[in-house]
Design a protein around this nucleic acid. Structure first.
Lengths: 359, 359
DNA sequence: TTGAAAGCGATACCAG
DNA sequence: CTGGTATCGCTTTCAA
């Protein structure tokens, strides 16, 4: 059995079946080689007369010829596809980065092979295999402690522990933490609590150390009872809600919370409200990321913005750059830092002018 | 030049370079044909002695052999990949459906080729071409008025105007609308306003007609000034906010709003609050979808739940079924309806027991 | 029970 | 300027 996976739609003239280079070759009385050269605008095609080129291009259009990428890739060793590894396709974080990646790669003609791993080790290992079998040209891993991928170009987003030969797009966590801490310190807060990320999240430790350092720089130190770590692996606000519950049980003596991200900040707000504290009057909450929810939610959320979409674009661009460079110059790993931005929100004024104020 | 796209990671023994069937063949002194048969568990392999089979499997593992899917697809005419066409990767709707699709197809060994079109016609046309060139085995289109895709199996999600030979996963809009209307009617509302979806959204008209019909069945008819259509192409709550603004300017005489979806419902709530009306005391708002935001947002949102994730799973399963069926039995288009569910929420009680009540 | 060989469709050398 | 031809890695008859 050997039916083609995809037949070309019937073209003008009612022809049918797959149109291949051979079809055009027979129709035009030219060799497949010449046709291929013209269609790809290869340098060798410059030697072919304009008239012939035109004939070829017109025939291709008339027959609705579509080059078979499978065959092309097999021969050329380039699949023009990129593997994307991502924890899940949830609200906010992943989705925003993914959107940036997709837009950039798609418009450069690359296909995306996406795998969501849900933090499961077995899927991570399987993914390495799948990427290899599909011969992706490069891999982008988002928020993932990635296993060593063979010698193909790899770019990570928010993976703080880069292997050599891996380009890494990261938020400048030091500045981000400083913004959060200075903001709260400037509002007069001295008793500040922290919600740490889950242990599986690749940014948890970096951000926590940055927050500690920033606190120290304004003369503060975190008491153990003012620190709680999220545990549940849910892309909702529940882990933050629970962690805040623990903070309250551990004494609850704080006037502000620095949450790991916006989702947990919202969980924190709900927990505080449910516990009878008002936000932001009794307790101020600061998040990270600035997901769409941050501006929609009431009370609105002050947060340290991470340019997520842009980080996706940067990752994709890094991949494209590497792939377009000659192999020998692909050596060094780079670290690309993106700048955070403090977004201070108040609950009033919506699409009526200045909804938020950036500092 | 002919460097392979992807070199296998050095296997045990420090061998290097791509491991192909040829490599194994030379190592084992067996033909590539036999090895292929065993590795694929093809029926013809039953005639091969157990001992030989074991040798082959062990060698494959030892060499870390990964079959080249490109070559396999080229030869077999099956790419084991599916094209997914989706408006965007935003909060809620698309992301949830996409997640269901991805999980199902990935664990069946299929690769996903995802394209987001942002409702742009040029991208839609380009996508047809790209899917053809990559020889995807099938296409899933989500919330998209899809151009005619060649003769390959196609499944749509929430596309109300199905071509023949296209399987369509849709919400039972009639029941969904009825739930919304009966809920509001049951609460005593008689002056009800409606926010219609944008003209480009594939479900706008179906849902609107369903809402009209349900209203009629409880003896209500919508006055023109109680209807507003969203216009902006934004995956945020802003279009709903604006539409509600228009409703208020058009008279504002209503005690309830049926919004096109949750995002617009939240926009409506904010617009009402900004206009000095309280929710739900002055005006009740009902949404559709039950995106994650619906339960996180305060005031919480009563909504008609669409099993989005499940719809993605169903779409993927429909594709797999079709692909596993013999070509001649692939004939008829099916319409798969999924049941909505009314989710009534009150603002209290969070993760402390019954957060929501399903009817 | 196994192997040889013919492709799948495109690209890239080497001739002429 | 253009064409033949080997090849990418795999599957699948057809022979032995």
């Amino acid at each position: 059995m050997n039916r083609p996976a995809l037949e070309a739609a019937p073209a003008a003239g009612g022809r049918t079946g797959t149109v291949s280079l051979r079809t055009l070759s027979e129709h035009l009385g030219l060799s497949m080689a010449s046709i291929s050269r013209v269609l790809n605008g290869s340098p060798a095609a410059q030697a072919i007369p304009k008239a012939t080129q035109t004939r070829i291009l017109e025939a291709a259009r008339e027959f609705n010829y579509r080059p078979n990428q499978l065959a092309r890739s097999l021969r050329s060793g380039q699949s023009t596809s990129v593997g994307v590894l991502i924890p899940e396709i949830s609200e906010g974080y992943s989705a925003a980065v993914l959107a940036g990646i997709e837009e950039t790669l798609s418009s450069a003609g690359y296909a995306i092979m996406m795998i969501t791993h849900h933090h499961r080790a077995e899927v991570l290992e399987r993914s390495e295999r799948q990427f290899a079998e599909r011969a992706v040209d490069a891999v982008i891993a988002v928020d993932t402690a990635l296993p060593l991928f063979g010698p193909i170009p790899t770019v990570t987003v928010s993976c703080p522990d880069p292997h050599p030969y891996v380009t890494n797009i990261v938020l400048d966590n030091a500045r981000a933490a400083q913004m959060a801490l200075e903001h709260l310190h400037g509002l007069g807060h001295r008793r500040i609590a922290v919600i740490k990320g889950q242990s599986f999240s690749s940014e948890t430790e970096v951000r926590w150390r940055a927050i500690e350092a920033s606190a120290a720089s304004v003369g503060l130190r975190f008491l153990p009872e003012r620190v709680a770590q999220m545990e549940e692996d849910l892309p909702t606000s529940e882990p933050g809600y629970r962690a805040t519950g623990r903070l309250l049980h551990q004494g609850g003596d704080f006037s502000a919370i620095v949450a790991f991200n916006d989702m947990s900040a919202i969980g924190a707000i709900h927990a505080l409200l449910d516990a009878g504290r008002s936000v932001p009057e009794d307790v101020s909450v600061v998040g990270f990321d600035d997901i769409a929810l941050a501006s929609i939610h009431r009370p609105t959320l002050t947060t340290v913005r991470q340019p997520l979409h842009h980080m996706g674009v940067l990752a994709a661009q890094a991949v494209l750059e590497t792939l377009n460079a000659p192999p020998e110059s692909r050596a060094s790993a780079r670290q690309i830092m993106v700048a955070p931005e403090l977004v201070v929100r108040s609950s009033t004024g919506r699409w009526t002018g200045a909804e938020s104020e950036s500092v």
